[in-house]
Amino acid sequence: MSDTSQLQKLPKVTRPATPSALSNALVFGWRAVLKFKHVPEQLFDLVMTPIMFTLLFTFVFGGALAGSPSDYLQFFLPGILVQTVVFNAVYSGMGLSTDLGKGLFDRFRSLPIWPLAPFAGLMVGDILRHLIAGTIILTIGLILGYRPEAGLFGIIAAFAMLIAIGFGMGWIFIVLGLLIRTPTTVMTLGFTFLFPLVFASNIMVDPATMPDWLRAFVDVNPVSLMTSAIRGLMGGGVNLGEVVLALIAPVVLTAVLAPTTLWLYLRR
């Protein structure tokens, strides 16, 4: 057959100059972009829940919770952005678990590349996802009447913070993705862990009306701290303390889980 004759003509190919770690990471980032091109429906998963939440809470509960839907939207929109980013991280863990199940990472692991490069690529994909989903939600919010009082710079700062939050939370699900070979289990576990964090927070309601024991939790819940900071950044009146508090969880998660990821991945 044609294969053999052509294969015998295949010249011996030697390796070009060793690429840098950054170049390896960018290749994986390119892979994440290609995934958007080929599987655009993944965005549907990402934005449908937050869009439904926004509409449901604003119009069904908004009047009761804040006097009028438009007042509630002003309170709720920054929070739903945090929720979107946090839930997004679960999908990235599922993607990793799927890749690992298929043996794709075995090929990556047998290549002489920077070992963390595949994860850097996942992160690039995540950041793109956060940006796209965040922009869609914000646009819908603007159409419904949300007014970002801190203006464009407030929005840019808030999105930078969202990316930091997504980056930090992303490690949790990368570790889960490495440990669990069933993508749906990653999802179930992820949401089981995230639901209490997201609902027992100040995203949907002001904790002032909650019982003391619950408020004690809500006040220190990292998701609340993140939401307060995003609210401040977008609505104006943020202070440095809020920003620092919001960044504690992402920084700690990265410091602990990035080395864990490397260890789990290289363990063999």
Binding site: L34, K102, G103, S110
Partner: peptide, 15 residues
Amino acid sequence: IAMTGQFASLDEDLT
């Protein structure tokens, strides 16, 4: 070295 594993190690979504 290079290895082709027992189960395809390709990205199914890409061309």
